[in-house]
């Protein structure tokens, strides 16, 4: 009986319609590539391969965006009623040297808003390249686990894990991932998301 109920539960889970919103910057949008090659679309592909029958992905990535625009963009997507919201913002804040306190405050507002929606939240961690200096890098990297702990939300420790700084996995600009790089990112994100479905 127990086994039957477990199978029933799994089948229900696999057949349920899940809506995942990715809110991010150029890394999410798929800068320089077809949007179908960006990691949100690859995550969908991975989920479908795993047997999830109905997954809707909303790619809310906007190149160049910072955490400042996060809250207003969230409101635009509220009517789409996402089940999971993946926040992948902050890289541009860091690259532009925005004070970490400001970035942290913006992300906090977004998470608070999402908590009020009763939506599952995944926060993607970012790291700055070494040229930004140890002090700023450490302060910046600390934002994400701190917020994840504070709000008890899921965390992708580093979105570009295994991709950042690897020439083969990035476009010629050395910043944005290529198609291969996005597949690696998708796996990193998928490993956290699939537990929430």
């Amino acid at each position: 009986m127990m086994r039957f109920l477990l199978i029933l539960f799994l089948v229900q889970a696999l057949c349920a319609d899940s809506k995942i919103l990715f809110i991010g910057d150029s890394l999410t949008e798929g800068y320089g590539l077809d949007p179908e090659k960006a990691y949100p679309a690859v995550v969908k592909e991975l989920l479908l391969n795993e047997g999830y029958k109905s997954v809707t992905i909303i790619n809310g990535g906007v190149s160049g965006s910072t955490t400042s625009s996060g809250l207003s963009r969230l409101k635009w997507f509220q009517r789409s009623k996402p089940d999971i919201v993946v926040i992948a913002l902050g890289a541009n804040d860091g690259l532009r040297g925005i004070p970490v306190q400001k970035t942290e405050a913006n992300l906090k507002k977004m998470i608070q808003e999402l908590v009020s929606w009763d939506t599952k939240v995944v926060l993607c961690g970012m790291k700055m390249p070494p040229n930004y200096g140890m002090e700023y890098r450490n302060q910046f990297a600390e934002i994400f686990p701190t917020l994840a702990t504070e709000f008890e939300i899921d965390l992708v420790p580093f979105l570009l894990k295994g991709v950042g700084g690897v020439p083969d996995l990035n476009l010629s600009d050395g910043i944005h991932p290529n198609e291969k790089g996005y597949r690696v990112i998708a796996k990193t994100v998928y490993s956290v998301i699939y537990k929430l479905l």
């Binding site: 040297g97 070494p130 040229n131 700084g165």
Partner: peptide, 25 residues
């Protein structure tokens, strides 16, 4: 440029220890 500039000599850039694997240079 989106940031103010600081000009230094190329010989002294190593002293910053900022050019490492993963640095965007």
């Amino acid at each position: 440029s989106l940031a103010p500039k600081v000009y230094i000599t190329v010989q002294n850039i190593e002293a910053t220890e900022l050019i490492q694997t993963g640095s965007i240079v």
